[in-house]
Simulated scan of single mutants.
Amino acid sequence: MKIDLTDTTSSKINKALVQGRHALGTPAVGMVLTMVIVTDEENAYDSIKAAEEASHEHPSRTLVVIKRHSRTLRDRTSSRLDAEVRVGADAGTGETVVLRLYGEVSDHADSVVLPLLLPDAPVVVWWPVDAPDNPARDPLGALAQRRITDLYAVEAPLTTLETRVASYAPGDTDLAWTRLTPWRSMLAAALDQARAEVISAAVESEAENPSAELLARWLEARLRVPVERIVTAGPVVTAVRLGTEKGEVVIDRPEGPLATLSLPGQPSRTMALKVRATSELIAEELRRLDADEMYAIALRGKDSHEDAPTGAKENRTHV
């Protein structure tokens, strides 16, 4: 069910949501959080689709904030809020409200969003594109327990990565980091099997890949060895090589959904390591809404262990 509202208010949008639920015979919806997506028209469709797919695991109210760029002087001086309310099958397992902000109201998106948040429920803000330099201090970001950005969506990801280091606050995370979860799990399992001290490491990827850089920094922090960055022609992260006194531990995925794991003294084996869809990444991020300490460690890289308390620093056989 869809309800279109023109030149509306947050109060009228809330009434439309109630009316929509009653019309469908489901006045009480078991939603667990509010997802705020800040995007543009070009990326809105894909972002909404990803959020709706993720809502099958995490029923949520999704608020999509689109700030429309005014083309005429009249548009720039006028202020208007249009909304598209979706409930039922048109909104996954929750509710979706697409908010289009014009004129002066676009500078006060937080005032529009605040009355639409689910009461007593966590808030997550996701910027698929054009994330602020300091998400925690952004007016919308300040409403959230978790703030999701994506370094893959910027022109200079490694430069922006340094900005993320400087502005990090508990609750920040990035989909470039989320994409590494299968790699991190496989590396941890491989080192548990190898039971050998790591003395060198290398990460292979396409140039300027933010996930590869975060992975290299995480390995430097956890293993306390220099990590070589090697540029390859393959997509995203293509291989990780860990040198040990027993031989080399290698995870190699030049292309496709399968990777080859090689351990010293053992036959190579093939394992699943696919590139996951955005909806899967968002669903993973919504499973935990506390601070992502591992992301903070990866951002700081080799400097992370300098701040670790005695007893918290790990040896070079585990990641």
Rank of each mutant, 00 (worst) to 15 (best):
A23H: 11
L24W: 00
L24S: 04
T26A: 14
T26L: 15
T26P: 09
P27G: 06
A28Y: 12
V29H: 11
G30I: 13
V32L: 09
L33W: 10
T34D: 06
M35G: 10
V36G: 03
I37C: 15
I37H: 14
I37F: 14
V38Q: 07
D40Q: 08
D40A: 07
E41C: 01
E41H: 02
E41Q: 03
N43D: 08
Y45N: 15
Y45F: 15
D46C: 08
S47D: 13
S47A: 15
K49Q: 14
A51R: 01
E52H: 08
E52W: 04
E52G: 04
E53K: 11
E53M: 12
A54C: 10
E57V: 13
H58Y: 06
P59K: 03
P59I: 04
R61H: 00
T62Y: 03
L63D: 07
V64L: 10
V65Y: 14
K67E: 13
R68K: 12
H69D: 11
H69P: 10
S70F: 07
R71M: 12
R71A: 12
T72S: 07
L73H: 05
R74T: 08
R76A: 14
S78Y: 15
S79R: 05
S79L: 03
L81V: 04
D82H: 06
A83M: 09
A83Q: 11
A83F: 09
E84Y: 06
E84D: 12
E84P: 05
V85W: 00
R86W: 09
R86I: 07
G88V: 01
D90Q: 14
G92V: 01
T93A: 09
G94K: 05
V97N: 12
L99I: 07
R100A: 08
L101Y: 11
Y102G: 04
Y102K: 04
Y102L: 07
G103Y: 04
S106D: 02
D107A: 13
D107V: 07
A109N: 02
P115A: 07
D120E: 15
V123R: 02
V123W: 02
V125C: 02
P128E: 10
D130T: 09
A131T: 00
D133I: 08
P135E: 00
P135Y: 00
A136W: 11
R137Q: 13
L140K: 13
G141M: 05
A142T: 14
L143M: 14
A144N: 07
Q145L: 07
Q145H: 09
T149H: 00
T149Y: 01
A153I: 04
E155P: 05
E155S: 13
A156M: 03
P157G: 00
T160W: 13
L161C: 00
T163W: 02
R164P: 01
